[in-house]
Write a protein that binds this DNA or RNA. Structure first.
Lengths: 214, 214
DNA sequence: ATTATATGTGACACGGTGTCATGTGTCAAT
DNA sequence: ATTGACACATGACACCGTGTCACATATAAT
């Protein structure tokens, strides 16, 4: 986490630094980005940087968490909009996020995130003992999200199975984002792939409704 | 790929270098490992290293491909053993691989692989234009593997759906390995989780057989 | 005015990378 | 035996990025 000093900074200076950081993390992955570039861009001395952040990763995960938070909000709003339909809300979340990735100013940043997605990036926020606030925020999110999901339409037995279903869905969503950014499939193709994969899941996970006759 | 010079090396010297590399890549991820440590350990001069490998990553992916190849072999043999039953063979592949991770000398290496798994590590071998041999090897593998799978027991329509099902399975397998190495779940727990997730998939992906009631 | 506290600053030591000029060994041709 | 061609060995070095630290400056409290 950034230091208190960082948050005491005048708004403009803080924004300036954050913008420079976004530019660098859009240019390169966490591993390849350099503090040297950020401070050169933001015109702040080296020593100041270390007064605000522990290191490169500290800044990176701070930015990442901000973006993740807005993503979680979108997931929640989708679940509400689709009245708890897990598959429908996941589908719209996927499509809308992919669309944002296509046209968004943060496309390169997202690209670097997904092509270098690893355990640390995917879970650090959850497990980071140093960040109990963030940890709690994410726990709350999952609790709220799961309680929003309407289980009567799903072929699952209990909360635990719902949890695993969400885990599977998340893995599939991330995998498709990665393929998109890797250029393995274009926008339309990724959408089709995801729809097909959702369908494979649904055939069993939706409570039988008559279309199981093959 | 290592240079011709590397392969011309006397067996012992080559092994010595590879052992040092394994030790370093077991100690640290690709990003954190250092050539300096490897050459110190193997007692070879810096210049020699660069005569054998382009850089750290070149050596790393060479080692990784060797291990991947043996993993692919295991998957094939499981498919044969289980007479093309995708789920049964995946289950045994998962269990047996996890078991090897538990007790194997290469446990730390695997840990660093999975906790730092990213697109490059997962797909580089497939996409690496510089390595047409490896690329072809992997394409062949998927072709052979898919042809081994018995589709009559599966609720899928065509080869394309089988491909996506395998994609989903792979994502789930990797995710569970990651959770294991991250210490989020122990051996037994991961096995249970994976079994549960397979079951969630099967309920729909296996052709209806009567247990779809409720 | 003095002290305390917060913040700013850049030179520097350290460690790792990749290169390159030079050294060594081998072998075939003369 | 000498020469040249080739493959390989070697470690000093230039370069680059990191994190620290001693010192400078600002602001507020007493």
């Amino acid at each position: 986490m950034p230091t208190k000093t960082f948050f005491n900074l005048p708004e403009e200076k803080r924004q300036n630094l954050m913008n420079a950081a976004m530019r660098e993390f859009s240019r390169a992955s966490l591993a390849d980005a350099s503090i040297a570039n950020i401070i050169k861009d933001a015109c702040i001395p080296r020593g100041s940087f270390y007064q605000y952040f522990e290191d490169k990763a500290d800044l990176f995960f701070y930015i990442l968490e901000e973006h993740s938070a807005s993503n979680r909000e979108l997931m929640m709003s989708m679940a509400v909009k689709h009245k708890g339909d897990l598959f429908a809300s996941s589908a719209e979340f996927f499509e809308s996020t992919l669309h944002r990735f296509m046209h968004h100013e943060h496309r390169d940043f997202a690209r670097n995130i997904f092509l270098n997605m690893n355990y640390k990036i995917e879970y650090k926020l959850i497990l980071d003992v140093k960040n109990p606030t963030t940890t709690e925020r994410i726990r709350d999110f999952y609790r709220s999200y799961m309680s929003l999901i309407n289980r009567t339409g799903l072929n699952i037995r209990d909360e635990k199975e719902l949890f695993h279903l969400i885990k599977i869905l998340r893995a599939i969503i991330i995998q498709n984002f990665i393929q998109f950014f890797a250029g393995e499939a274009d926008y339309e193709e990724v959408l089709r792939n995801f729809a097909l994969e959702l369908d494979l899941l649904k055939r069993g996970l939706y409570a039988p409704s008559g279309d199981m006759s093959e």
